[in-house]
């Protein structure tokens, strides 16, 4: 136990120092932005997604009139059991799915017609690590740096720093084929952040990590806030949400059922933690669906 705590403390100091060394990008505000003065990074209004089922089956309402706003520089937790609609919502926000109705605005751009601009501003860490097995960790990061039109020096600088922070420098020289699940998750996270995105969508970023690596990753995510990034985090780990998030939204059966600061929600429902908040509202546990 002492060993784990010591490591976490060491990681914490090291990461915070290194993160402050990473330069943050200046983003231009092109002319076709909807609302350039908005203080919100993400604005979702009456979002709805219905998957049409085959003949004889009912349609599936994955996201049902969901509305919320995420402030710039905020760590926003999106909680809910499996199948609640978290990933569908993220997929709409990043442009992989088209909403049936409603609007989603990312940093002032509508996802329907400003997707190219949005793609330059966001970093996405998908739930399942999507990694080319024949590339080394470093090559994989460089590939995505190149796709974001970063120059070689920029890619090298950020790659080395991010690898160092997450203690992946040595492994990054090897092909990803031999990586453990935790290492793949970390690499997944670095790829999402290589281009220094203004908004990061992290879909269950710590699933499959051992407790020590998970805590180190939490510190890393927390340190991103210091660079004024907006983090949209989905997670099953209530402890993770409580520790990291400024605000959380709870979604179940596609509906947003509660939103607020974790402490305020715990006080509001007179319970001990967020898990109990969820149980009180829905009558089931967040981890139940897993």
């Amino acid at each position: 136990m002492f060993y784990i705590d010591l490591n976490v403390k060491l990681c914490k100091t090291k990461q915070v120092n290194k993160m402050s060394e990473i330069k943050t990008k200046e983003y231009e505000k092109p002319e076709n932005i909807i609302n350039p003065n908005s203080k919100f990074s993400i604005e979702v209004d009456n979002l709805r997604k219905v998957f049409n089922a085959k003949k004889g089956y009912d349609d599936v309402i994955a996201v049902d009139d969901v509305s919320f706003k995420v402030k710039s520089g905020e760590i926003f937790g999106f909680l809910g059991p499996n199948g609640a609609g978290k990933t569908t919502t993220i997929n709409i926000l990043i442009g992989l799915l088209k909403a049936t109705s409603g609007t989603a605005i990312i940093n002032g751009y509508d996802v329907q017609d400003g997707l190219y601009h949005i793609k330059q501003l966001i970093g996405v860490c998908p739930q399942e690590p999507a990694i080319f097995k024949f590339l080394t960790g470093k090559e994989m990061i460089e590939l995505f740096g190149g796709l974001h039109s970063m120059n070689k020096a920029e890619i090298k600088e950020r790659t080395n720093k991010l690898l160092d922070i997450l203690n992946l420098s040595n492994a990054s020289k090897r092909k990803t084929k031999g990586y453990s699940g935790g290492m793949l998750r970390q690499l997944n996270l670095i790829i999402a952040l290589i281009h220094d995105p203004k908004i990061a969508f992290l879909d269950e970023p710590t699933v499959g990590m051992d407790p020590r690596v998970r805590r180190a990753t939490w510190e890393f995510i927390r340190s991103l806030k210091k660079t004024n990034k907006t983090i949209f985090l989905t997670t099953h780990y209530i402890e993770e949400a409580e520790k990291l998030c400024d605000r959380v939204a709870i979604i179940d059966y596609g509906k947003l059922i509660e939103i607020g600061n974790p402490k305020e929600l715990i006080e509001k429902y007179s319970v001990n933690n967020l898990e109990e908040v969820f149980m009180k509202i829905t009558g089931r546990r967040i981890m139940e669906g897993m």
Partner: peptide, 13 residues
Amino acid sequence: DQGLLKRLNISPM
């Protein structure tokens, strides 16, 4: 199958 096309699609590519 490995979700790589989706990941590439999220980039400005």
